[in-house]
Nucleic acid binder design. Structure first.
Lengths: 118, 118, 118, 118
DNA sequence: GTGGTCTAGACCACA
DNA sequence: GTGGTCTAGACCACA
């Protein structure tokens, strides 16, 4: 057994920003908060924001306008694609747990239905 | 936004043991490893195992035979119940993410089917 | 016949705190002494106080304000209920002794009256 | 707060023997088990039994027939008197707890009735 | 050998 | 300053 080490803050911030983009709080093409501003808001070091933005840019979700700041990509289809990938990964992790617990598809689907049925 | 601090070791060990019980690696009624043995195996202090075992005992998954060791409860129905509760919690967390991402039941179920279809 | 071994320190401290709460020395909603302070005062290890406080919290008599300390529950009715349970247990132990000694209700009640009549 | 030290074994044995006498398991005038026998039965050192017998003899509940062993006093009235004293002491300790908990005579008597009513 | 309790003391998060 | 977790290790009861 290996103990999970603490998830690094920049990946937590990446997750946070992704969700904000996926849910439309930050729309396609919209300007993101300046680094210093977001750093202050989340009470973290500005370098941490720099890294989170950079990683998201590598993934193609953000782009830089040199002196103007960081923006969400305008490509709605791309956002949609990444969102589905993200949710699929979450779903796979969940299914992995259910398989570890020896629950079959039917039982799991029943639990899912149960949640939506509430 | 609040950053998750590292999950404590004893709760990670609890989670690990629960999964082992849920999947049948530790069967109902079976003896668990002695405190000192598990501590050595996981390279943690015996007190940390004492705590993990104690918490699981409070939940009713374990019981103590005074000088004989710790055992998984023999109540299979109870284990099943706790397992379903555990998986349901995981499912709810997953659904919460999908809702944050503005995905409806149909889309989520399609993703689930996709995973099972592989 | 089994000889009672010494009662553990943390349970003695629990008993002590319960009585202080039951008699109103610590009122509903009142802050309890900080762990380290009570540990110093009772000349025990802080961990022992941690445990006593934790057990009382599980029973619902205490609650934690994260960085502010431990407090007696504000629920006066709950305190009253636990108090009656505690005294009833004491009464049952006493009655058990009288029955072992072959004393009936009348004789016991007479002894009780005798004490109150003093 | 002073932590109760463990009650000494000989006093626990005294209590045990008293109760056996009070309830008639050892009748007035009856021979008590030989020291070695009782020591073996209770898994304690014979000297501990010697001390318990000696203390009970001082109280007048036992007497020695030089080469014949220890006997319960034949004085039934005396046994009765000591029994009442013993139970009264227990009652006083119980009432002390109730007073510490700020319960009045009526509430305590109600609890007692509750136990007898079961 | 089994679990249970306790100490001394470190280090952490939160604010 | 507040509580929470953890380590290293002692000592205990039970059998």
């Amino acid at each position: 057994m290996i103990f999970k080490s603490e998830q690094s803050i920049y990946t937590q911030i990446m997750d946070y920003l992704k969700k904000e983009i996926f849910c439309g709080n930050y729309c396609a093409g919209q300007k993101l908060p300046p680094i210093r501003e977001l750093a202050a808001q989340l009470a973290v070091n500005p370098n941490t924001i720099v890294r989170a933005y950079a990683e998201l840019e590598k993934e193609g979700l953000l782009f830089t306008e040199s002196t103007n700041g960081k923006f969400v990509t305008a490509d709605i289809e791309f956002i949609k694609k990444i969102k589905i990938e993200y949710v699929t990964t979450q779903a796979e992790e969940f299914v992995e747990i259910t398989e570890k617990c020896k629950l079959g598809k039917e039982e799991v689907m029943q639990i899912m239905e149960g949640i939506y049925g509430k």
